[in-house]
Amino acid sequence: MNTDNRRRIKDNIILSFFGIQLLMLLIILSYMVGILIIGGIHVISWKTVFTSMLKGGLFETIIGTFLLFNGTAILAAPIGLGAAIYLSEYASKNNKIVRLIDQAINNLAGVPSIVTGLFGYTFFVKTLRFGISLMSGWLTLTIMALPIIVRGSEEAIRMVPKEFRETAMALGATKWQAIKDNVLPTATPGIATSIILGIARIAGETAAILFTACALTMRGLPRTPFDPIISLTYYLFVILVTSPSTSQNKAYAAAIILLSLVFLLNLVAIVLRAHYRRKWRR
């Protein structure tokens, strides 16, 4: 009995120690975010958001970020969804090409964003002559968003019960009709989650767009997809790397806007996913 007690105490000590670590980690992270918010809350206002950079605002950077991730979503979502449908509905596991595709997605997910940026520079900017532009940025970022969208959508589609397909096909629908009319509508929340997560990742990306989409020479907002842009992340990068002591206030403002955007996107994704997972988990 005595050793039993001692063991239980030991158990409790060890596991509480782990719990305390987790708690401390969460406190440190919240503290870091808190510092940002405290430092920036008095700087930020609707005026900063809507005033041009030439007049001390951040308008162009925000528009740049929105243009960047919206365009990427338009490119990456259909490709990613198509790949996900193929992998979950049509591909047979033992097919060599299917395994290659699987491997390619995992490897794409692991390529450091700076390397993707280098590739974007030689291929889209130089070889295809798109220049440092929105277009090069979209294509480069599509490569980064694809793995996230494919994996997420695949999971969502696989979660739809088999019966949804079988019933439709028993009623005479073709395979694609069954997928289009029964499976995809059911999987929509999950697919949306994956696209939002992909966008969130893109919105916060810096390294991949440093030399593919962004330039400091501001000529106002981009007029065509072949103009360079300035994004929130790029703006922060330039301020912090080249002149950390100046314009700290604007850096705080930009950081808060960026963080709110990314948190908001992730929050939506998490809530959406919790919702559909609860629905489909047996």
Binding site: A200, G204, L240, P244, N266
Partner: peptide, 18 residues
């Protein structure tokens, strides 16, 4: 997941100031 989503410029910024 939320913390994993914080962009790396922001981690850099926080690191720089704190």
């Amino acid at each position: 997941e939320m913390f994993a989503a914080i962009p790396s410029v922001i981690y850099g910024f926080i690191g720089l100031v704190t």
